[in-house]
Design a protein around this nucleic acid. Structure first.
Length: 574
DNA sequence: GCCGTTTTCGGCCCGACTGTTTTCAGTCG
């Protein structure tokens, strides 16, 4: 039993307890679930080494939860959880993912209509049964319908950042097999799309049969669609489909190129080949029947008379034309970040102390981080007011002393943009901060022009450095608010505001096409983890991937600068 | 169910918004 399984059970229990209107316990379960999800070590290992006492030393886990974890680890089940399920046998997790549907309405739907899952709910909506229920109406029926559509739209696709751990683990195991000479994850994973449909793996192997056998017998596999010598297809327990192809070495580059896509890029590439009286397919580049190239991708692009194109750019957005003219931008490298300008701590809704976050940043090799806790309007996070933020500065000074330069902690804020475009901290405080980030956390449904005006109003404030997660979207959960991005980009240019590329796997905000538009206007970006726990710094890689998909170069990323250079840049503002 | 420089009991993030109501429950963050 893995941490994610236990975390899911605790989250389910929290929902059940909320249905029963039991106070406070749900928070305890939720908090523990979050902590467990963020844990770097498996609970199983912690328990094996230190028994129950070690479990209890984890913050948020006391005697009661330690016992439950012990039961889960030992028996694979939890009687308490099963009893809750028996009382109300619904797919509570699935129903709760629908925006606007909470525990109390789930209860009513179950008791009055017997709704147990998404499918039941759809049927009830189709039969117009919802609006007659107590507490529901015409509008809530409409909202539920929309919510279901939104969940279904994302159905079958996975967030890259959530699927990556599984994918990497499979990749490592396959690479370690004897007889495997080369192996690469291709497809949308290689292009670093924010969501992926399935996983395509390309390999060269001396004995294809052995690698294929190992592949279809991995413990995560629940279904084998196909099991052949050159191609096998499986479904994993988490729902992800994975294809593996074994390719002759001669065709490896061509196959990698073909299975990396995108389809549009491939078609355009083949058209260029045709104009040169060549033929490109997954086996190689040919003149008539004569093989010309295909062992590596580099060789392929060269033979087509163009620069090598990074996978993140292969969307047929003009990259082929630039490659032919030798004018491709040099994308920001994955190791180029020197700092992180959005980090939350336990002063608001983060899970760890300033010092713990700073130490994690040292491990990540970051030269500096900015602590950017929420501000007072965001009451649910205990957002900071002018008094507490000044108290926080003292703690930051203490931490910096203790760190002795291992990394530098900057004083920052994620200051709320209020409805009228004013900011949630007084000017006198904002002026003293190293990093002022601003963001929208309320009034998501303003008309587009009003929303745009509101945000631009905030950007005109002389102390503002960065607009955090500029469109507010949450992948698979919430659409971006309506905003005129062109106007925001123009404002960023005019008022010298940096736009954030938020690296959190469910945000990745800005999205690639906006990054490209902003690049055309030569806007500066910051790639930030938005870390709420020490493990989240590793998400920075997804932010860089997103930046590369938007064709961003190193000189446009503010946190590729050294600390001294960065502070110089930021201080150009008052 | 957790936690403690207000410590072993009694607190626990709480205000805004929506849609249902016609003064409030449910949900979100």
């Amino acid at each position: 039993m893995h941490n994610s399984d236990i975390a899911k059970i605790f989250n389910d229990i929290a929902l059940y307890l909320e249905i029963e209107k039991i106070p406070f316990k749900p928070r305890a379960y939720e908090k523990a679930a979050q902590t467990i999800d963020d844990l770097q070590e498996e609970l199983q290992d912690i328990y094996t080494q230190g028994k129950r006492a070690a479990l209890e030393s984890i913050p948020g886990i006391g005697k009661g939860l330690a016992e439950k974890i012990e039961e889960l680890l030992k028996t694979g089940q939890l009687i308490y959880y099963e009893e809750l399920q028996k009382k109300m046998p619904v797919n509570i997790h699935e129903l709760a993912t629908i925006e606007g549907l909470g525990p109390q309405h789930i209860k009513i739907l179950y008791e009055k209509l017997g709704v147990k899952n998404l499918r039941d709910l759809e049927k009830a909506i189709a039969a117009k049964k919802i609006s007659r229920l107590p507490g529901f109406g015409e509008q809530s029926e409409k909202n539920l319908k929309q919510g279901i559509e939104f969940v279904k739209k994302s159905h079958g696709r996975f967030l890259l950042g959530y699927a990556m751990a599984t994918i990497s683990s499979i990749e490592q195991r396959l690479k370690n097999l004897a007889h495997v000479q080369r192996l690469t994850i291709a497809g949308s994973v290689r292009r670093k799309k924010e969501t992926i449909g399935d996983v395509d793996i390309i390999a060269v192997a001396k004995k294809p049969k052995t690698i294929m056998d190992s592949f279809v017998h991995m413990p995560e596999v629940i279904h084998v669609y196909a099991h052949g010598e050159t191609k096998s297809m499986i479904k994993l327990k988490n729902g992800l489909d994975v294809d593996l192809r074994v390719i002759p070495e001669k065709s490896y580059g061509a196959a990698l190129n073909y299975f990396t896509g995108s389809k549009a890029h491939n078609i355009a590439l083949r058209e260029k080949a045709m104009k040169k009286e060549l033929k490109l397919n997954e086996y190689g580049l040919f003149r008539g029947k004569k093989y010309i190239a295909g062992r590596t991708e580099e060789e392929l692009y060269t033979a087509l008379g163009m620069q090598y194109i990074e996978p993140e750019m292969r969307e047929n957005w003009g990259e082929i034309e630039l490659a032919l003219q030798n004018k491709l931008p040099k994308l920001v490298p994955y190791n180029a970040l020197r700092g992180d300008l959005q980090v939350q701590t336990d002063w608001t809704d983060g899970t760890a102390s300033i010092e713990a976050m700073a130490k994690a940043a040292v491990k990540q090799g970051l030269e500096y981080i900015a602590i950017t806790d929420h501000t007072k309007r965001l009451t649910m996070t205990r957002g900071l007011d002018e008094k507490r933020i000044q108290k926080q500065w003292k703690e930051i000074d203490r931490v910096n002393k203790r760190l002795k330069g291992a990394t530098t902690v900057l004083k920052g804020t994620e200051c709320d943009i209020l409805k009228d475009g004013s900011l949630d901290l007084p000017d006198a405080i904002l002026r003293q901060l190293d990093v002022v980030g601003i963001s929208v956390h309320s009034h998501f449904h303003l008309p587009k022009s009003t929303q745009t005006k509101r945000i631009i109003q905030a950007m005109t404030h002389p102390s503002v450095h960065i607009l955090f997660h500029p469109t507010g979207r949450l992948l698979h959960r919430r659409e971006a608010y309506e905003v005129d991005m062109e106007a925001i980009i123009n404002a960023a240019k005019k008022y010298h505001v940096i736009l954030e590329i938020n690296a959190s796997p469910e945000r990745l905000d800005l999205k690639d096409e906006y990054i490209r538009k902003a690049m055309e206007a030569n806007i500066m970006f910051s790639i930030d983890s938005d870390a709420h726990s020490p493990t989240h710094f590793t998400n920075l890689a997804y932010g860089i991937a997103q930046a590369r998909r938007g064709w961003a170069t190193q000189k446009n990323i503010i946190n590729c600068l050294s600390l001294t250079e960065l502070l110089l840049e930021l201080k150009k503002k008052q």
